[in-house]
Amino acid sequence: MNETELVKRCGKGDNLARKQLYERYAGQLLAVCIRYTGDREVAQDILHDSFLNVFRSIGHFVYQGEGSLKAWLHRIVVNEALGYLRQQSVSLSHEVVMDDIPDVEDSEEDDWETIPPKVILQFVQELPSGYRTVFNLYVFEEKGHKEIARLLGISEHSSSSQLSRARALLMKKVNQYRKQMRR
């Protein structure tokens, strides 16, 4: 079934179409949930609620070519995750504690290929909640600091410093991982 057909049938409540949509995208969307929430169990609940939402409103979705469906699903999931995180909002607005952030050298640029995505996901999960959210919004949703600040109710400065620290932490983990792999 092509995507136009899939969307149309889901809109009409066709259960087979719904299952197909789920099977095509659940994995990717779960990865997104985990990336945001850091917790697999919570991520699964969010995925569940996201899909309920998807099927309730897919009737109004206007398919606009390749990638539009994925983007729409993605957006629903991110919004659900952010909603959850907002409940945990305490950590988002906390100012960053400087001490535990190491200074790291920039590692080689094109080395992501050697690291499995699963590992990368693990690293992102391990980030403190506040950094992780800012990181996700900046890197994956490609939002600017101004927008992130507005969304999360923090200052723009806070957003950019949280991003730098997230970036530094990740880099440290990546370097550690590479050292381990070389042994």
Binding site: N15, R18, K19, Y22, E23, A26, G27, Q28, L30, A31, I34, R35, Q44, L47, H48, F51, L52, F55, D106, S107, E109, D110, D111, W112, E113, I115, P117, K118, I120, L121, V124, Y138, V139, F140, R167, L170, M171
Partner: peptide, 30 residues
């Protein structure tokens, strides 16, 4: 930031295995 770009590209289409019962739960709630 090429480093972050690289990270994004690597993770963009990544898919995690989904637990078996999840669809059944969704279906039930639908």
């Amino acid at each position: 930031d090429k480093w972050l770009d690289g990270l994004r590209d690597r993770m963009k289409d990544y898919s995690e295995p989904v637990p078996d019962n999840l669809w059944a739960d969704i279906e039930k709630d639908l």
